[in-house]
Amino acid sequence: MADLSARDIEKVKFAFSIYDFEGNETMDAFYMGECLRALNLNPTIAVLEKLGLAKKKKEKKYKLDEFLPIYAQVKKDKDAGSYEDFVEVLKLYDKDGVGLMMFAELEHILISLGERLEKEEVLPILAAMCDEEDEDGFIPYEPFLKKLCDGVKS
């Protein structure tokens, strides 16, 4: 693949081999998202579905040469957002411009906007990545974003 460096190809081969559970040089399409995330990419569910994510195991298999173009496409996707992009979005909720937002608003954003999460998915994320709320229910949002983005950097 002209789009990928030799190092990228080696990383993909290694990750692909981990998801080759049967040892037959194929990966179940059900695990496509997990494999891409193991390669430090962060595709949305919509992107994965467009690229052929299987809803159930054993519906479809990929060979490495079929998976490499998928990896290349997701890698070059510029629609993932960056730390700076997320800071700008959360500044909209920072009414006083002091780097704080309501904890409840952050929870609401994660549950109801964009690629929605269930409350059961959001609570552990917030518990692990947010500072304690102050007496008025505010948290600093930049440390949350820093922890979140550091977890998905390549």
Rank of each mutant, 00 (worst) to 15 (best):
M32Q: 06
E34F: 09
L36P: 03
L36W: 03
R37E: 09
A38E: 13
A38V: 11
A38M: 15
N40I: 07
P43Q: 06
T44D: 07
I45C: 01
I45M: 13
K50N: 13
K50Q: 15
L51M: 14
L53K: 13
K55L: 13
K57I: 08
E59C: 03
K61P: 05
K61D: 11
L64G: 08
P69W: 02
P69Q: 03
Y71A: 12
Q73R: 12
Q73Y: 11
Q73F: 07
V74F: 01
K76A: 12
D77I: 02
D77S: 03
K78L: 10
G81Q: 05
S82P: 04
S82D: 12
S82F: 08
Y83T: 11
E84V: 09
D85A: 07
V89K: 08
V89D: 00
L90W: 04
L92R: 02
L92M: 11
Y93C: 04
D94G: 08
K95W: 09
D96Q: 14
D96H: 10
G97Q: 04
V98H: 14
L100P: 09
L100C: 14
M102K: 14
F103M: 13
A104K: 08
E105Q: 08
L106E: 01
H108A: 10
L110A: 00
L110S: 00
L110Y: 00
L110D: 00
L113I: 00
G114P: 01
E115G: 03
E115L: 03
E115N: 05
R116Q: 15
L117F: 14
K119D: 09
K119H: 01
V122E: 04
L126F: 04
L126K: 09
L126S: 10
A128D: 14
M129V: 01
C130G: 08
C130L: 09
D131F: 11
D131I: 04
E133G: 01
D134R: 02
E135V: 09
E135P: 00
D136Y: 02
F138S: 02
P140I: 03
